[in-house]
Design a protein around this nucleic acid. Structure first.
Length: 418
DNA sequence: CGTCCACAGGAACTACGGGAAC
DNA sequence: GTTCCCGTAGTTCCTGTGGACG
């Protein structure tokens, strides 16, 4: 911290460029996504937490915890509860004289087996082991070897949380983890895995052997209802200065979020944005009307985050589909396309994509590659793919439908291209 | 009925960057 | 310094699919 007194010397208060005292927020961290609420702030998940705790309970005696698979839509508190239970477990185990740790892996970040093992190993590593876990540069097998050694040396039991497990490119790591004990790789440490997925279908594409070992216990987290969302936000209202939040704000935000799949994260985002909008407008209170604008902004932000870091060509492909969507279905033309699914087949998207590449002066990628890019977007729920058969002279083909609002996509793409 | 069209998607391969280990 | 290994972004080649058409 620097001495602000020095910096503003000789200036009158009205000249200040920056606001010194936030008129809206007092503790904004409460509204950050990464913020982990403490006990008593987790709403409406008592039962789930109890069951989860029950599944991993043996760990506090140094015995094998059950492996768990948690399903639920985004923002239903899956990661939150998993972390919470794990943290409590480690604490309780310690009281029992058992060395326990948990490692949290966000598989959306670490999509390959190697990266995931690396994250686990480096997060459970301690100074005492004198084992070095480099960021990259060594083989997957080496990471495993070092991980096993750390676990054997330091711990009696380990809990590994694999969040967004469906983003993992294959289940090799699950195989390794579930068989580590049997194969004699690890002798002194029990391993438990908590898998978290928001795709129910995930289980179907799992290897049969992995499935039987990983899915000892399964839980489904239901979406929050409006009442619970209300409570969740109310529990965080001390992020705001006293009396700044108008009464209708939280119920309104809760209602909006409840309608959109009961996503608590979105609800909190909306609340934060509403506050920021109030701030930007210099309003003294957060008014209900800001909530609607906040939702809009949350939407745009989420999408921007989604395509952040994507390659130019990946964007061109998206742009192509957006152009098609816009010209085919301009401004709320609702009735004229009632019989069509307003999806566009791959080759059509590819044609437009080629045009865009010409405009941008870029070489075009192969059709094969574009198919993969489209598939990647589908995976991120930016668009939806559907298989069809029939037509003029075809067997099967795929149609792509933009799930996001085309105008939002267009605007975000336009702003980031430059 | 066979063939062909126009697409889907798997597999193998290339090229390049970057770090670790020996 | 050389050899290994991984990640990313692509390409090329190939096999499959299923209705239309001669």
């Amino acid at each position: 911290m620097f001495h602000r007194k020095h910096g503003v010397q000789g200036m009158s208060d009205s000249d200040d460029l920056f606001i010194r005292e936030d008129p809206i927020f007092v503790n904004k961290e409460l509204l950050e996504i990464s913020h982990l609420p403490d006990e008593g702030r987790i709403v409406g998940r008592d039962e789930e937490i109890g069951q989860l705790a029950n599944a991993v309970n043996p760990a506090i005696f140094g015995q094998s915890p059950s492996n768990v698979l948690i399903y639920g839509k985004t923002g239903t508190g899956k990661s939150l509860c998993a972390k919470y239970v794990s943290r409590r477990l480690v604490g309780t185990a310690e009281e029992e004289g058992v060395d326990a740790v948990f490692a949290y892996v966000d598989c959306a970040q670490d999509t390959t087996e190697t990266q995931a093992v690396q994250t686990i190993a480096s997060s459970v590593n301690t100074e005492e082991t004198e084992i070095y876990i480099p960021d990259k540069g060594i083989s997957t097998a080496t990471y495993y070897k070092r991980l096993w050694r750390i676990l054997d040396q330091e711990y009696d039991v380990t809990l590994i949380i694999l969040d967004e497990i469906d983003k993992l490119e294959d289940d090799a790591i699950l195989m390794q983890l579930s068989r580590a004990g049997e194969a004699g790789k690890v002798t002194d440490c029990k391993i438990g895995v908590m898998g978290i997925s928001n795709k129910i279908k995930y289980k179907d594409r799992m290897d049969e052997r992995v499935k039987s070992s990983l899915c000892e216990r399964e839980f489904v987290f239901p979406p929050y209802n409006a009442g619970q969302l209300n409570e969740i936000m109310a529990a965080r209202n001390d992020a705001f200065r006293n009396g700044v939040l108008e009464d209708a704000v939280i119920p309104r935000a809760a209602a909006l979020a409840a309608r959109e799949h009961g996503d608590a994260r979105k609800a909190i985002d909306i609340l934060r944005y509403a506050g920021e909008i109030a701030q930007a407008k210099g309003a003294e209170t957060v008014r209900e009307e800001f909530v609607v604008q906040a939702r809009e902004r949350a939407e745009v932000d989420r999408f921007r985050e989604l395509i952040r870091g994507s390659t130019p060509h990946s964007r061109y492909v998206l742009q192509a589909l957006t152009v098609l969507s816009l010209e085919h279905n301009p401004e709320g033309a609702y009735s004229d396309a009632a019989d069509e699914t307003d999806g566009f087949r791959t080759t059509r998207v590819y044609d437009v994509y080629e045009q865009i590449c010409r405009q941008e002066g870029a070489d075009t990628l192969s059709l094969r590659r574009v198919r993969d890019l489209l598939k990647e977007h589908a995976f991120l729920d930016i668009l939806e793919q559907s298989r069809h058969s029939g037509g003029s002279a075809e067997g099967s083909y795929t149609e792509h439908t933009l799930l996001e609002d085309p105008e939002v996509v267009r605007d975000v793409l336009a702003e980031t291209v430059s």
